[in-house]
């Protein structure tokens, strides 16, 4: 199924904001919950917009600067919108020895984006990650944080990408 380009099905900011407050409620006033809240907020919104960071800072009782500091420290968090599907190519040692560079090159050629970029149609974001622990399947990549594709060969990569609309 092709997802709707205008995103009309997605809840608007007001709705997201309400849901975010529910997440914050669980940790209100507890600065130790910052990473958990950010993780859940990103799951909800897809990235971490400024308005969300402000709500989280207020809710947990920490400064916005501190929140920003944490967000930019951890590779998992993103301040900019990302594509619907996140392609994470493993660049762990085992994958590197067995052909990470080939995988990245093939994806770059197929999608025309570099690691860290998103396709203009917001379909894919390409990133490089450090070892997903699937070394037995090297070279490997993980899509949307859950589907591991291993023993990759150049010719099958476009086919795999096609499965993610």
């Amino acid at each position: 199924m092709v997802a709707c380009e205008c995103k009309c099905e997605e809840p608007g900011k007001d709705e997201l904001s309400k849901q975010l407050e529910l997440i914050i409620d669980e940790y209100r006033g507890k600065s130790s919950g910052l990473i958990q809240v950010l993780t859940k907020a990103q799951e909800l919104i897809g990235y971490l917009p400024k308005w969300a960071l402000i709500s989280i800072a207020k809710g947990l009782g920490v400064s916005l600067q501190e929140v920003y500091g944490v967000v930019t420290f951890y590779a998992f968090f993103s301040l900019i919108p990302r594509g619907r599907h996140k392609i994470s190519v493993c660049a762990g040692t085992a994958c590197y020895v067995k052909g990470t560079n080939m995988v990245i090159k093939t994806i770059r050629e197929a999608l025309g984006i570099k690691p860290g970029q998103t396709t203009p149609d917001s379909r894919y974001t390409l990133e490089i990650v450090r070892c997903i622990g699937a070394c037995g399947l090297a070279p490997a990549m993980i899509i949307d944080g859950k589907d591991v594709h291993g023993r990759l060969e150049a010719e099958q990569i476009p086919e795999i990408l096609e499965q993610y609309a």
């Binding site: 762990g92 040692t93 085992a94 450090r130 070892c131 622990g133 699937a134 070394c135 037995g136």
Partner: peptide, 11 residues
């Protein structure tokens, strides 16, 4: 936090 690339024992 098994971060060493090439290590997946803890997992």
């Amino acid at each position: 936090d098994e971060g060493d690339p090439g290590a997946f024992m803890d997992r």
